[in-house]
């Protein structure tokens, strides 16, 4: 699910990063008392921190004043919205911090309970050609029996998670190695891709051929176009139209679940 309320998102972001937040939803303003760590990550003043540490002193993290409403911005309160540099930085930071995980289902059983390992990955699929499209897919593989599921994240979201093993629980060691599990998921994705019709790619490829024909025609008749230039131009065309699919794992990790 995409972020719908930027203000809420920011409050969550700073809160889970242990910053104190004073927020006024109506004005879109946020006063954030940064922690030392967050100051370093967001405020871009490495020399200050280097200096402070060298002198063995305690640094003072800044207070960040922002607003999500353009007309509420002042000299001391900067505008933050999708697309601003600071937002990009926050996104980058969020993606970095949320990239790898190992979590246990949070349950409170009365007796010894086994937790079964799953490898979960969230993958960004990009289909690039004349037109471009991206989607976020979430897959999971049961590391004991090899079952692969789609829409894994939605399933995980219905449960609660903790970073430590709950009492009376014991995790089962995977039978399938994680790396192997990853390759199986990848294989699964590729099979799905192969089974699909890719009209977008056909169209883009077609277009590439037409463009190259045009270029060839030009080359035959126009002396001013030398070989090197011709080749560059051809590469340029390929860079635009050659259909590509790219898989990029956004985040993932091992999840221990109570049900087998």
């Amino acid at each position: 699910m995409a972020i719908e309320n930027l203000h809420e998102f920011l409050v969550t972001y700073f809160t889970i990063n242990h910053c104190q937040v004073d927020s006024n939803q109506k004005d879109g303003t946020l006063d954030v008392r940064l922690t030392e760590e967050m100051d370093e990550r967001l405020m871009n003043r490495p020399f200050y921190w280097q200096y402070v540490r060298k002198l063995n002193q305690v640094g003072t993290p800044l207070e960040l004043k922002i607003t999500t409403q353009y007309n509420k911005a002042t000299k001391d309160r900067s505008y933050l919205s999708f697309g601003t540099e600071r937002f990009n930085k926050i996104c980058h930071d969020t993606l970095l911090k949320g990239r790898f995980t190992k979590l246990y289902q949070s349950i409170a059983p009365r007796q010894q309970t086994a937790l079964y390992p799953w490898l979960i990955i969230n993958v960004k699929m990009s289909y690039i050609g004349k037109q471009q499209e991206e989607e976020l897919r979430s897959y999971g593989i049961h590391l004991i029996n090899g079952t692969i599921i789609d829409h894994a994240f939605e399933w995980l979201e219905q449960k609660e998670w903790t970073t430590t093993i709950p009492d009376f629980c014991y995790p089962i060691t995977p039978l399938i190695q994680m790396r192997n599990g990853y390759l199986r998921i990848e294989h699964f994705i590729l099979e799905q891709l192969q089974a699909n019709q890719h009209q977008w790619a056909e169209a883009s490829y077609q277009h590439l051929q037409e463009e190259i024909q045009l270029l060839n025609y030009f080359k035959e008749r126009e002396q001013s176009l030398n070989e090197a230039h011709y080749l560059t131009e051809k590469e340029n065309l390929k860079a635009i139209y050659q259909p590509k699919i790219s898989l990029q794992v956004i985040n993932g990790g091992i999840f221990y679940l109570a049900q087998p």
Binding site: M1, A2, F9, L95, K97, G98, R99, N122, K124, N251
Partner: peptide
Amino acid sequence: HFKLAYHVA
């Protein structure tokens, strides 16, 4: 953090 990263992506 894991969940937030997913939403950002």
